[in-house]
Design a protein around this nucleic acid. Structure first.
Lengths: 198, 198, 198, 198
DNA sequence: CATGAATGAGCCTTCATTCAT
DNA sequence: CATGAATGAAGGCTCATTCAT
């Protein structure tokens, strides 16, 4: 009897992705060898090529799926929210939650961009820009509807994302702050920055 | 061959540091080869070893001198300032100015930490913590003397630094905002966050 | 490229050992490069690492297998011999035969010891000592049972081995003396030294 | 005032020779770097070239002076001895004494021959052959005058030298045997081998 | 004489990748 | 699909040697 289609191969591929994220997060894309990766998966280096086209291809697929998911889940989160204030709260909560929950993926998605070859780099940057745009939209709507005071919504969108992203650099699950507390703190800071104390 | 006329140890070392920063910023520590670096300096790869002990040693010295200078110049900047509000303004201005002026160094100092071997990593992290402490001091004094409202001065110090640091990721000298404008914008955001509109 | 058709791990490893012995005998361990060795085997330098862990590892395995075989075959040779005189004759014949037949291995086994790192050196020296002990046993039994006159059986064992080993330094298959003649000559010298003319 | 001629330079050269013998004995010619040697002498690697022409030149001069001295002192030792038996005793004593006293030099003189380039190798081998000839002469005269029984004086000369040389491989000044005792033991063995118990 | 900085070749080793089995 | 053995390029580093200072 032949193997159930996609069963074993799929599992191996998933294992490769997971080990890839772990290793690249810890050592960096350039510093991780395919032998190391294969070892973590429990196969030989050559066997990786039954699942990935190349090392670069692996990195791209990894980052792509990360950024894609970040966008898709954000869309879902904001889907039925019209009020800019509510949207902003949702965004802050979503961003911090996602970023701290996926520390490794976030790190890779930010720091390994330069290891992508030009063609792949372009695709990822487009997706990231799309994410920024969602926040800029919220800001623009808040300025129009709620009289938020913002020097410039483009700059501010980036500044807010940079600030919110900073959390995941130093967030420690055992560190005395729950995600909820962090969300509270940052929401407060954000709305103070918008001239509308939460 | 012998020494090229006019060459000197100090000059070569400086050239190595400069080319090192350029290349590591652009391609990452792991991705830069010593042959590449030597080529940029105009010497043979082996000749690098008259000036550095190893590739790792170069990275460490690079990052160390960056973080050291960041600290020392901050100390100088804050030396005679007692008022927390003035100190905060000085800190924001200093941080943004330094970070945008030394975009490359900042990038390396943050992103290549993981390429440091444990022993070197520890030393750098200590220096970075010292920098954070300077800001925490300002916050604590502001809370005490000026009734700033801050959920937690440790968390806030990191959050502020993360926010301010984000600037240098997207700052573009030709991008429509002068440093002075950025300093203004961020100072405003910060003081709003402290409950004391600038 | 992929594997050359018909190649196999075992065969390649054997070829590496054989070329390794040839080259190290001729030029010395330090003077032989892995490129040279790989060239003699007909593969690329890097491919050696599919079969050995390092250059040092190759040397160790080479010497280890030599000294191990020397011991094992001696054990087989002496297995059923109780009479010390017969045992001594067997030892002399065995030692000279083995040493002249394996001139290269003997040379490497003696002269490249210092190229072994401490840990490997220790293991080899233990095996060599074991070989000496076999001769010392024969001497002790000869002294007890046959009234051989020996100043000191430990010193004498080493002296005899040194003397017998000297043969292989200058032995030349085309040089006028057959192995049988050498064995005769040395057996005679040995027994004269024992006070028991052969 | 100018430096006394030959004073400082001579001293440095002597230091180079001494450090050279130490290091080559310990690690082997190929394994010793000129930097290491220079370090042991207390100068920079480049400065060595004020005293030696090349690394190979150093090795040759080292070995040459060793073999030359071995010959010259033997000549002095045997100068006024006509009786072959006395000469043999003198040879055994001299060889063992010299070989154990100059363990390092002996080792280098034997084991680093292969690191000499062809031209230098030839010169050294000629000197070594001369030394063997002195012993063969003694043997021939003993056979003629004293009825020593020797299968072949050429083979025996080499066998004796190999045997006597073996001493220095395992001789240990703290090892329980004085040089005098070793000389006694080996003289006894030799004369027994000659059919003339001492 | 000694130094320090340079060269260019070479070393051991690792790597991503390929493919017969 | 997985393996194991191969490739060819490249990597970090050391070396003997040279020579302006």
């Amino acid at each position: 009897m032949s193997r159930a289609p996609g069963s074993s191969g799929e599992k191996t591929l998933k294992a490769i992705y997971e080990a890839g994220i772990d290793l690249i997060y810890q050592y960096g894309y350039e510093a991780v060898s395919l032998r190391q990766l294969a070892g973590a998966v429990g196969i030989q280096a050559g066997s990786l090529y039954n699942h990935i086209a190349s090392k670069q291809d692996l990195l791209f697929k990894l980052i792509h799926s990360i950024v894609l998911e970040l966008n898709e889940q954000l869309d879902a989160e904001l889907e039925n929210i019209d009020d800019p204030e509510e949207a902003m709260r949702a965004f802050v909560r979503y961003h911090i939650t996602w970023y701290t929950a996926r520390k490794q993926q976030v790190f890779i998605g930010n720091m390994e961009l330069r290891s992508l070859k030009a063609e792949n780099y372009t695709k990822i940057v487009a997706l990231r820009r799309r994410y920024e745009m969602r926040l800029k939209d919220i800001l623009d709507r808040g300025i129009a509807e709620k009289h938020w005071s913002m020097p410039d919504s483009s700059v501010s969108a980036r500044a807010l994302i940079a600030m919110l992203s900073g959390v995941c650099v130093w967030y420690d699950p055992e560190g005395g702050y729950s995600i909820e507390e962090l969300v509270s703190i940052y929401t407060e800071i954000v709305f103070k920055g918008l001239g509308k104390p939460a």
